[in-house]
Design a protein around this nucleic acid. Structure first.
Length: 648
RNA sequence: GCUGCUGUAGCUCAGAGGUAGAGCACUCCCUUGGUAAGGGAGAGGUCGAGAGUUCAAUUCUCUCCAGCAGCACCA
């Protein structure tokens, strides 16, 4: 762009600077340093911006030249180039396919196509083969800047309507960048590699085809999306594929069957049939939460599952969420609905008495089961269901108490997550959505209260504009699990609206009747979902205090039956969840079966144990065993099985 | 809800236009065996549901239901 050829100074990461003519490209700079760097270079960072080797530099700048050793830049370029190479491969095989967009994502990329015929799994093999051919051609990547009119004309002529639409959506009037790999061309921000041969041909894999809406909008046409994963080396690809296999082994749906925790039926899609083992785990969680909430000053209530339409009209659910509610038809000409939330019921409990400022904050908790008609495609094991139990609570307080109550909830949530080994928690703050009730003023206040509390607690958070609930903004607590996946669990919402809709008041010190502020909060969120998350977090190997069966006492021969029963009785008396296995099977068989079912402790008893009043202890996942006196073992296990909140 | 795929015994899966098979699990018998599958016998299926094509459908076609992956959704 610049006409003058005045020298500019480029500063390298080691602090040295060199002088070049304005308009020099990183490729020229690399060649100036060494011919081997010129070959190996993949891109540059110029003034902190990821920069194509072909882009000119017009002013003084800092510069770093990247090679494949720079993992972050290399991954981005490899994935981005593969997106283009895949699109080119697809269009070479099926020329009538229209291209749309193909961004880099975590571990890989995807590209969305419009093609009448669906891609089959076999097609993926064809495409992959073609991609490797393109890589082997080592086609140089070239780039030009076009003005919009030319770009629009080009795509119109080439029957690529999606690209035209994309250009129309790019704001302003800035020129557009075009990229070529051989003859194939795409509109693209860049940067890209020097040539297709810089992509490692053995470090990528096409993973799946699925539908995806054009521009993410379900009103738009559905396109076909092909996902790929790519890395800078074959070893890294293998490691990633291995990690996926490991994650699949943690799948709570699979473990739920193996551990005999729950199942689903066609007659109740999205609703759980809890088996004895699963229900024990579920109840252990509820008992824990009940203790924590009681200690934090909550009172527990229970409200009806089915309530009249009138209530849901008052709360606003009837107008905002009726599509997603289960309705109950009866012979008395009334419309009922299964509760999708507990809050309206709690409003009625609040309103059933005259509340004084002395009663506030009033913290009403309920392990209420709610029903929501979730879209069929959303259902996923325990993680997304149509009926679930919330550890729900509503805190009624004065405006003055609001920030402090938010802080208390925040502390409680973090403390509880730590008890389950979740130390890595981040927070999302979702603000007023388009569809909402209540005044701007009340939204200002409630969003402000959440921000103030977070800042007072020194918590960092990410804002999600327009993602709040229809009645108020919300905080969402997101856990990162053992293998780096994020799970949204707890939530805290401020609500000025429901108290107003229900005409709720409290008597202030002045004698005035004032509306309380209300907090909605859930810590586990959905008990069903949290159970699923725990199963995946621990890969089924639950900590002792959560394990539904903590001990199985397995006999080696039937001579040990009486003693085994005695051991179980002793354990049960000590509050341990223990069972006998007296079956006529070999100890190997029993050990295998209980190990697969993830029972944390197997006690084998044979002649020696009977004679010496000991147990042979085998821990889940350990090969060696240890023989211990029964009393000693029980004492140690009691300690280990004590829930974290009850430990001294 | 949308796109694609799938649905056969409790589980994991094979099969084929002529009303079905394996392994494990289950029941019984033998076996009393010291830390991840001892041996034998037996029982078990309207092949997801309904309709259509056909002499004949579990197999082919259509509709519905459910599941899986992704998208959209998630008060």
């Amino acid at each position: 762009m610049s006409l003058d050829q005045s020298p500019i100074s480029l500063t390298f990461p080691d602090g040295n600077a060199r002088s070049y003519d304005a308009g020099v490209t990183p490729a020229q700079v690399a060649a100036d340093i060494s011919s081997s760097l010129a070959k190996k270079a993949i891109s540059a960072t110029v003034n902190g911006q990821h920069w194509d080797l072909q882009w000119p530099i017009e002013a003084d700048a800092s510069i770093a030249i990247h090679t494949m050793k720079d993992e972050e830049q290399a991954n981005e370029l490899v994935r981005h180039d593969l997106a283009h190479i895949m699109a080119r491969a697809v269009q070479e095989i099926w020329p009538d396919t229209k291209v749309t967009i193909g961004p880099v994502i975590e571990n890989g990329w995807y590209y969305d196509f419009d093609r009448a015929e669906p891609f089959t799994p076999e097609d993926l093999g064809l495409i992959e083969k073609k991609m490797k051919e393109i890589i082997n051609k080592r086609d140089p990547v070239t780039t030009e800047v076009w003005d919009r009119a030319r770009a629009v004309q080009y795509y119109t002529d080439n029957n690529e309507p999606y690209k035209v639409e994309l250009i129309d959506a790019i704001p302003g009037d800035e020129p557009l960048r075009m990229y070529w790999h051989g003859d194939w061309q795409d509109l693209c921000r860049g940067p890209h590699l020097q040539h297709t041969g810089q992509v490692p041909g053995d470090a990528f894999k096409l993973m799946s085809v699925a539908g995806a809406y054009w521009r993410g909008d379900s009103n738009n046409q559905m396109l076909q999306r092909i996902y790929g994963v790519a890395f800078t080396s074959k070893e890294k690809l293998k490691a990633h594929l291995h990690m996926l296999e490991e994650a699949a082994k943690r799948d709570h749906r699979k473990l739920g069957r193996e551990m005999d925790l729950f199942h689903f039926e066609e007659v109740a899609p999205g609703s759980v049939f809890w088996h004895p083992n699963g229900w024990r785990l579920f109840q252990t969680l509820i008992a824990y939460m009940r203790r924590r909430q009681e200690a934090a000053g909550y009172v527990e209530v229970n409200s009806p599952d089915i309530m009249d339409r009138a209530l849901w009209e008052t709360s606003g659910h009837w107008f905002n969420y009726r599509e997603n509610m289960f309705l109950a038809q009866t012979q008395d000409d009334r419309d009922y609905a299964l509760k999708p939330m507990n809050c309206p019921g709690h409003m009625l409990i609040y309103n059933n008495d005259i509340r004084s400022y002395r009663d506030l904050p009033l913290k009403i908790a309920e392990f209420g089961k709610v029903h929501r008609y979730e879209p069929s495609g959303a259902l996923h094991g325990l993680l997304r269901v149509r009926s679930f139990t919330q550890d729900d609570a509503h805190i009624y307080c004065t405006p003055e108490q609001l920030t402090e109550e938010c802080l208390k909830v925040n502390d409680l949530i973090l403390s509880i997550y730590r008890d389950f080994g979740f130390d890595d928690v981040h927070i999302k703050l979702s603000t007023r959505p388009e569809n909402r009730i209540g005044s701007e003023e009340s939204w200002d206040k409630s969003e402000g209260a959440l921000k103030t509390a977070l800042e007072a607690a020194g918590m960092s958070y990410t804002i999600f504009e327009g993602e709040g609930a229809f009645y108020g903004p919300k905080l969402e607590y997101v856990l990162r699990d053992a293998i780096g996946r994020d799970w949204q669990c707890g939530t805290l919402q401020v609500d000025f609206n429901l108290p107003e809709r229900f005409n709720s008041t409290y008597v202030a010190a002045s004698g005035e009747r004032l509306p309380p502020v209300m907090l909605h909060r859930a810590l586990f969120g959905s008990l069903e979902r949290f159970t699923g998350i725990l199963i995946e977090q621990f890969a089924g190997k639950l900590p002792m205090w959560l394990a539904p069966r903590q001990v199985v006492v397995a006999t080696i021969t039937s001579d040990g039956d009486a003693y085994a029963q005695e051991v179980v009785n002793t354990l049960r008396a000590a509050g341990i969840r223990a069972e006998t296995d007296l079956r006529n099977e070999k100890i190997n068989y029993k050990v295998r079966e209980h190990s697969l079912a993830k029972v944390p402790v197997i006690l084998a008893v044979g002649h020696r144990e009977v004679d010496e009043r000991t147990v042979s202890v085998r821990r889940l996942g350990e090969k060696q065993t240890s023989v211990q006196p029964l009393d000693e073992f029980v004492a140690a296990l009691i300690d280990e099985a004590t829930p974290p909140d009850l430990k001294g």
